[in-house]
Design a binder for these strands. Structure first.
Lengths: 106, 106
DNA sequence: CAAACATGCAACCAATTGGTTGCATGTTTT
DNA sequence: AAAACATGCAACCAATTGGTTGCATGTTTG
């Protein structure tokens, strides 16, 4: 995982509309573009752009089916973002631990 | 945690420069603005803006000390973003589980 | 086949972002 | 007190983003 790819994932998640889309997908059944675009407070084409942003970051995959296009969460991408944060936290904890050692024995 | 606050955290993490800053902070000792701004490929003021973005999202805290300003990671904010992703994944897994039940007994 | 439906594509626009430069201000150091 | 250091503030700029509208295209349904 390159730093840039991770940044793109976070960037994709860094918008309330896109976050809501992702939540809907994790929640309910497989949704197509049209359904997913409803009740977001923006136009269908606006929503489509946001979904495309999620596709580019691989947070989501598109599966054409007849006249509609199903949208599916990509769990591996979510897992990667989670792993990154957990790694950060681990480093941070290590550092705190080292600092504690230092103050105790210094 | 409001949806918007979470989105702001992800947005803050959604940039390679800011991501690198966060990693440096999790890695090393407490850094001041000046040190943190080095080797990012941008000017000090440019870096300062990025750091401010992290402050606004509460990914990072500033602690003035004399003529310099120390920058510190906010572990609770990282934890919140981690919790959000994990919650998403949990919902997703639940859904897959339900789907499996359905196909088995349907 | 015609109507309705789901989507795609492109042009356009305002607001935000990511970066710059120049200069001012407060704080150590010598 | 003067020099060096760490930072702040503001104006400015190009590129990206988030949204719109209008229209075209392929796919079901009646």
């Amino acid at each position: 995982m390159t730093q840039l790819a991770i940044a793109q994932i976070f960037k994709a998640l860094g918008d309330p509309v896109r976050l809501q889309i992702v939540q809907r997908l994790s929640n309910g059944a497989a949704l197509c573009l049209g359904e997913l675009s409803k009740d977001l407070g923006i136009s269908r084409q606006g929503a489509r752009k946001q979904i495309q942003a999620l596709v580019s970051a691989k947070v989501v995959q598109l599966h054409p089916a007849g006249r509609e296009v199903k949208v599916q969460l990509d769990a591996t991408t979510l897992a990667q973002s989670r792993a990154f944060i957990i790694a950060l936290e681990a480093q941070w904890d290590e550092r705190l631990q080292a600092l504690k050692q230092f103050t105790e024995h210094g």
